[in-house]
Lab assay of single mutants.
Amino acid sequence: RPMNAFMVWARIHRPALAKANPAANNAEISVQLGLEWNKLSEEQKKPYYDEAQKIKE
């Protein structure tokens, strides 16, 4: 299954978030990633939607 825009973004940002929160488990990191993603504007998300579309094609 191809990655969606959030997954493209999260793949880039997960390592830094995990390093900054070494005690957090994957579920907690995923929740935090979701919160951070939701704070982004549509303009900030656009490159990730574009990349996800390329992956689908």
Rank of each mutant, 00 (worst) to 15 (best):
R1Y: 13
R1A: 12
R1D: 11
R1V: 12
R1C: 15
R1K: 14
P2M: 12
P2C: 15
P2T: 12
P2D: 14
P2L: 14
P2R: 12
M3S: 08
M3E: 07
M3A: 09
M3G: 06
M3H: 09
M3V: 13
N4V: 09
N4A: 07
N4R: 06
N4I: 11
N4T: 15
N4M: 12
N4E: 09
N4P: 03
A5W: 02
A5L: 01
A5N: 00
A5H: 01
F6A: 00
F6L: 02
F6Y: 09
M7Q: 09
M7A: 08
M7N: 07
M7W: 15
M7K: 06
V8N: 03
V8F: 12
V8Y: 11
V8H: 04
V8T: 03
V8D: 02
W9D: 00
W9H: 01
W9N: 00
W9E: 00
W9L: 00
W9K: 00
A10I: 06
A10N: 02
R11S: 11
R11C: 15
R11T: 11
R11Q: 12
R11M: 13
R11I: 11
I12M: 10
I12D: 06
I12T: 06
I12A: 09
I12E: 09
I12V: 08
H13S: 05
H13T: 09
H13N: 09
H13L: 04
H13C: 06
H13I: 07
H13A: 08
H13K: 08
H13D: 00
R14S: 05
R14I: 04
R14K: 08
R14N: 02
R14T: 04
R14W: 13
R14P: 00
R14H: 05
R14C: 11
R14A: 10
P15L: 10
P15R: 11
P15K: 12
A16K: 14
A16Q: 12
A16L: 15
A16C: 13
A16F: 13
A16W: 09
A16Y: 12
L17V: 12
L17R: 03
L17T: 03
L17M: 11
L17I: 14
L17N: 01
L17K: 03
A18Y: 07
A18G: 04
A18T: 11
A18N: 05
A18I: 15
A18L: 13
A18S: 11
A18R: 15
K19F: 08
K19S: 08
K19I: 08
K19A: 13
K19G: 04
K19N: 05
A20C: 05
A20W: 05
A20H: 06
A20M: 10
A20F: 05
N21C: 08
N21D: 04
N21L: 08
N21T: 06
N21R: 07
N21M: 11
N21Q: 06
N21E: 03
P22L: 04
P22K: 04
P22D: 02
P22H: 03
P22N: 03
A23P: 02
A23I: 07
A23T: 12
A23Q: 13
A23M: 14
A23L: 14
A24T: 04
A24N: 04
A24S: 08
A24K: 11
A24V: 04
A24D: 03
A24L: 15
A24Y: 12
A24G: 03
N25A: 05
N25S: 15
N25M: 04
N25D: 10
N26Q: 12
N26A: 13
N26D: 14
N26G: 10
N26I: 09
A27N: 10
A27V: 09
A27M: 11
A27R: 13
A27Q: 11
A27D: 12
E28R: 05
E28L: 06
E28V: 05
E28D: 07
E28A: 09
E28S: 07
E28M: 13
E28P: 02
E28Q: 10
E28W: 15
I29D: 01
I29N: 01
I29T: 02
I29M: 04
I29S: 01
I29L: 11
I29F: 02
I29C: 02
S30Y: 15
S30I: 14
V31Q: 11
V31N: 07
V31H: 13
V31I: 13
V31S: 07
V31C: 09
V31L: 11
V31G: 03
V31A: 13
V31E: 09
Q32C: 09
Q32M: 15
Q32G: 03
Q32Y: 10
Q32F: 11
Q32R: 11
Q32I: 15
Q32L: 15
Q32W: 14
L33H: 00
L33D: 00
L33F: 01
L33K: 01
L33V: 02
L33Q: 01
L33P: 01
L33E: 01
L33W: 01
G34F: 15
G34D: 11
L35R: 10
L35K: 10
L35I: 14
L35G: 03
L35P: 00
L35V: 10
L35Q: 10
L35W: 09
L35S: 06
L35N: 07
L35D: 05
E36C: 11
E36V: 10
E36S: 07
E36L: 15
E36D: 06
E36I: 15
E36H: 08
W37A: 00
W37R: 00
W37C: 00
W37H: 00
W37S: 00
W37T: 00
W37G: 00
N38Q: 10
N38Y: 08
N38V: 06
N38C: 11
N38D: 10
N38F: 09
N38S: 14
K39E: 04
K39A: 09
K39M: 08
K39I: 04
K39G: 05
K39N: 07
K39H: 04
K39F: 04
K39Y: 04
L40S: 01
L40G: 00
L40R: 01
L40Y: 02
L40E: 01
L40I: 03
S41H: 03
S41T: 13
S41P: 06
S41M: 03
S41D: 06
S41Q: 03
S41L: 04
S41W: 01
E42P: 13
E42R: 13
E42K: 14
E42D: 14
E42W: 15
E42V: 12
E42H: 11
E42S: 10
E43A: 13
E43Y: 08
E43V: 09
E43L: 10
Q44V: 05
Q44Y: 05
Q44R: 05
Q44L: 07
Q44A: 11
Q44H: 07
K45I: 02
K45W: 02
K45L: 02
K45C: 01
K45P: 01
K45Q: 06
K46H: 05
K46G: 04
K46F: 04
K46I: 05
K46V: 05
K46R: 10
K46C: 04
P47R: 06
P47I: 06
P47H: 04
P47N: 03
Y48D: 00
Y48S: 01
Y48K: 01
Y48T: 01
Y48P: 00
Y48F: 10
Y48W: 14
Y49P: 00
Y49H: 07
Y49D: 03
Y49G: 03
Y49N: 04
Y49R: 11
D50I: 14
D50P: 02
D50Y: 09
D50V: 13
E51I: 15
E51W: 13
E51N: 04
E51R: 11
E51D: 04
E51L: 15
E51M: 15
A52D: 02
A52N: 02
A52E: 04
Q53N: 11
Q53E: 12
Q53R: 13
Q53S: 10
Q53F: 09
Q53W: 06
K54L: 10
K54H: 08
K54N: 07
K54V: 07
K54P: 04
K54Q: 09
I55N: 08
I55S: 06
I55Q: 10
I55E: 06
I55F: 09
I55R: 06
I55Y: 10
K56V: 09
K56D: 08
K56A: 14
K56M: 15
K56Y: 13
K56L: 14
E57R: 07
E57P: 08
E57C: 09
E57F: 08
E57Q: 11
E57I: 09
